[in-house]
Design a protein around this nucleic acid. Structure first.
Lengths: 210, 210
DNA sequence: TTTTGAAAGTGGTCTGACCACTAATCCTTC
DNA sequence: GAAGGATTAGTGGTCAGACCACTTTCAAAA
């Protein structure tokens, strides 16, 4: 039986300590040596926990002064980052909405570019005529063609955590709709393309709940 | 003159090493003792860097076996965070653009909601008349009012790792512009609001490079 | 051939020792 | 008494060495 890693417990214990002692952002937290003694672990273990929290932006260390909770001004950056990293609350609705934000932004970006002149674009059109067409391929191609790789990565991430609404093959009706979207993009009519896309997307999500 | 933190350099150096030696996700990276010798630092320093990367999910350590690059096939979060942490300058542009995607989406969402009827909204308007107004407050309030907490969190992350273009106080001209944006939102004129916002934002980013 | 167990290598942790830096304190000097 | 400078205690940053727990490997024993 492998022991759980100590420094991860330290992270939790420190969070509790911060809450119990009501340490506010900007305040100083106990020194490394103090923490080591109080939590009955070596100083190096404490430091490993602290360095993790520091890279996450939760604390700030100043040589000769001490370690401080990051002062985010009035906003609660600490909480937010913590909940994000620790994956506490992720409302499915928010995930879906955020995916949609990136998808529509991608469509808009393609309209403003000339990406639809690329060979990949033709290839996508042709695949839409084939008899096997995975829905996800369509959206992913759009994300790729948007040219924003970071946005693409975030989209991948959201898809993983939020469940993939684009699972499975597209029906005949869907393929017709998707072709219309491509057409609208070629005509640089972003509004129409996005409207049609949202129609398709919302049907999928509703069908998922049924 | 304060020395920069060593373990942060280690993070960068390790990135270079991984690229040069073409270590792929899932592969094993050199042992802690090896790294310590090769980079001419103590093992504890290496460990502090590794623990940070581990909490971020970039690497995975197995006692008795070694340390491995996390396979991003299952955890896309890895790639995402890697992009942030490793601060590839090529992606700065993507980060800014992605921030903008979330910002404009927030404005659009507020227009479609009734969030501008809330007391917070009035408070924001009044603060714009004060003589000290931090730019970031404006954008952050918009992100909060959008109601999408996940989008807000992502925005925070991007701001932290991509550098904050909204640092400092707004000038008189800027405040007038921001008031116009609020006005457009109240009239549910998303297009105008977003256009004005992008104007403001792009000026800030250009000024940053100067 | 199969089994076993010793050895080597790895991450996990602790200790104690320096160094670099900061801030409070004390002491000299005016 | 006030101002300025040196001292000192406390802090984070780093290092070296020592164990421990665990995994893999491989050679010796059955």
């Amino acid at each position: 039986m492998t022991q759980p890693k100590r420094y991860l417990n330290i992270v939790s214990e420190m969070r509790d300590m911060i809450r119990e002692q009501n340490i506010r952002p900007g305040d100083r937290i106990p020194s490394e040596r103090e923490l080591a003694e109080k939590l009955a672990v070596g100083r190096s273990t404490i430091r490993e926990a602290l360095r993790s929290l520091e890279l996450l932006g939760l604390i700030e260390t100043r040589r000769g002064e001490g370690t401080f909770l990051t002062d985010p001004g009035k906003h609660r950056l600490v909480e937010l980052l913590a909940t994000f990293i620790l994956q506490d609350t992720k409302t499915l609705e928010d995930i879906r909405e955020t995916m949609c934000i990136h998808e529509t932004a991608a469509i808009q970006a393609i309209c403003s570019s000339e990406a639809w002149k690329l060979p990949v674009w033709q290839s996508l059109r042709e695949r839409l005529d084939g008899h096997e067409f995975i829905r996800e391929d369509f959206v992913r191609e759009l994300m790729v063609l948007s040219g924003n790789r970071l946005s693409l990565k975030i989209w991948f991430l959201l898809k993983q955590y939020g469940g993939n609404p684009y699972d499975g093959e597209a029906s005949l009706e869907e393929k017709a709709l998707l072709k219309n979207i491509l057409l609208a993009i070629e005509q640089q009519d972003g509004q129409t393309a996005i409207r049609e896309f949202k129609t398709w997307s919302s049907v999928l999500i509703k069908g998922e709940n049924a």
